[in-house]
Design a protein around this nucleic acid. Structure first.
Lengths: 106, 106
DNA sequence: CTGATATATAAGTATACACTTATATAAGCT
DNA sequence: AGCTTATATAAGTGTATACTTATATATCAG
């Protein structure tokens, strides 16, 4: 099964390395290729995955393609983790409440 | 290469489904197995990956093992995404500044 | 102690996918 | 037009890993 998501897109080391480079600012494909130890086609393939996951976006500039972070997709990732964090806090409160009740039963 | 991280741990659909179930609260392995369409050993294997990534934790209760979200590991994930978001905002500001400069040049 | 239940581990298999090289596409330059 | 540079796509390969069944471990109940 193939499952494109921001999480799976960032799961692989080489792809994460490309993404981390893009955090520093927009880069062309050849610049990105210099940053990692894989071939240019491999970089293009990773960029496609990142793009489909809406983590990065691309604009053409003459001969080159400039990749950069995609604010829209990243906003969704942020939302996911924010909501996740709400659940974590809720679980904490629930656990604290139960502990309190157990103390009262003594 | 094997790369254990919260991101790769959540990258796979079945594992994400288990994690999403745990967001609702602590569950035993047999409860989790009912939620997904794979065997119990497969669930145990996924839980091990989630545990190594510090996304979930486990406590024994008699015969059973109760899995729940791991606040510590999830705090790290949150931190990662928060810092990532800072970079996104910075990239936005940079882009806006450049656009402004280009307008001034006209 | 014995059987039942809950979970983990072992071993094997099938498939997804990260990589490679070769080639296609597309834009810039002379 | 042709040549060069930048990037993408195609096709093939090796490996990681998600699954399976079988079995081991551990706790509980009688």
């Amino acid at each position: 099964m193939t499952y494109i998501s921001p999480l799976s897109a960032l799961a692989y080391p080489t792809r994460l390395a490309l993404f981390e480079t893009l955090r520093k600012g927009p880069h062309t494909v050849s610049e990105l290729t210099k940053e990692v130890s894989v071939s240019q086609p491999a970089v293009s393939q990773h960029l496609r995955v990142l793009k489909e996951a809406r983590l990065v976006r691309m604009r053409k500039a003459g001969n080159q393609r400039i990749y950069s972070l995609d604010p829209e997709g990243l906003a969704e990732l942020r939302k996911f983790v924010d909501e996740l964090w709400d659940d974590v806090l809720a679980a904490f409160e629930e656990a604290a409440k139960k502990e309190q009740e157990e103390r009262n039963n003594d």
